[in-house]
């Protein structure tokens, strides 16, 4: 309770807390590197992964293009991984930016108003979770047509459920809190109570869930593409893993190794940062 921190906003304090841990900082940097690769990809500045750089299935050697070897067509595995990074990150963000607003809105309204609105939202997500996740995504993306966008819409239109439940439960708790009654007694309307009073108190959950959502979407993309629903042009980690089944038997291990390593770092980093965010943003834990 010292007054030294008086000028610090909650956000700045959370950031300071985050940066206190070395591992978190490293993982933060890893995420930023992946984000930059994705950004370069979006700007068309990544090397063309379709171009031949050598013979078919050259093992890894000490040149940049061939550091992870080449694939069946003599294309650079590294360049494919980079393109896959762009795909994965785009999917993560697209799915999250569909799921998070839906989850926040429905969760807030259901928890705050209760009654019929709550009944409807609970019914809606009960229906969604009663069908296995992958089946549901596959079904929706078949309806919308194959490809990355429809896969993202499919994942996003299901992915809000977890966050919605969380936010709803928090709203149920928070609407009984004294600070909400106090605001009501001062004349706050529903909009003010929902979005200005309660939501900022539970938003940390949305940020944490969003970081895990990116992670989940990346993993799901791999599985979906492996199952033949997702990205078809080979520029995704999923399609590379899918190709690897045949390659491994013939001793061509490097494309798979490349994907596993690339995926490992981003998944690990997202996990660590997600956990750190949880600790740093929880208002209850702010010292």
């Amino acid at each position: 309770m010292s007054t030294q921190v008086a000028n610090n906003s909650l956000g700045r304090r959370a950031l300071q807390k985050l940066l206190r841990q070395k591992l978190t900082v490293i993982c933060f940097v890893v995420i930023i590197i992946y984000l930059s690769i994705a950004l370069l990809g979006a700007l068309n500045l990544l090397p063309d992964f379709q171009a031949r750089v050598g013979e078919s299935y050259e093992p890894p050697s000490l040149s940049i293009a061939k550091i992870f070897g080449t694939d069946i067509f003599g294309r650079s595995v590294l360049f494919k991984l980079l393109a896959g990074t762009k795909t994965a990150i785009s999917i993560g963000f697209l799915v999250t930016s569909i799921a998070v607003p839906i989850g926040i809105t429905l969760g807030s309204l259901a928890g705050y108003y209760g009654g019929k609105i709550d009944g409807f939202v609970v019914w809606l997500f009960s229906v969604i979770v009663s069908v296995p996740y992958l089946l549901m995504v596959i079904a929706i993306s078949y309806v919308l047509g194959k490809g990355m966008l429809s896969m993202c819409i499919a994942m996003g239109s299901i992915g809000w459920v977890g966050l919605c439940r969380l936010i709803r439960a928090e709203f149920l708790k928070h609407k009984e809190r004294e600070y909400v009654l106090a605001a009501r007694l001062l004349g706050a309307n529903d909009y003010n109570l929902i979005f200005k009073q309660i939501l900022p108190n539970v938003l940390h959950l949305a940020i944490i869930t969003a970081s895990l959502q990116v992670l989940g979407a990346i993993k799901s993309e791999v599985i979906l593409t492996y199952l033949g629903v997702g990205v078809q042009d080979g520029s995704s980690w999923g399609s590379m893993i899918s190709d690897a089944t045949g390659e491994l038997v013939n001793g061509h291990w490097w494309p798979l190794a490349g994907v596993v390593i690339t995926m490992f770092f981003i998944i690990y980093a997202l996990n660590v940062v997600g956990d750190a965010l949880r600790d740093a943003l929880d208002p209850k834990l702010v010292d």
């Binding site: 600070y179 007694l185 001062l186 900022p200 208002p283």
Partner: peptide, 24 residues
């Protein structure tokens, strides 16, 4: 009633520790 609350008629209650919004 909402317009009256906090303008014409106001109320404070027992729990000063928790009656303020922690994030503002």
């Amino acid at each position: 009633m909402r317009k009256l609350r906090g303008d014409k008629i106001a109320m404070i209650f027992q729990e000063p520790m928790t009656a303020l919004n922690p994030v503002y």
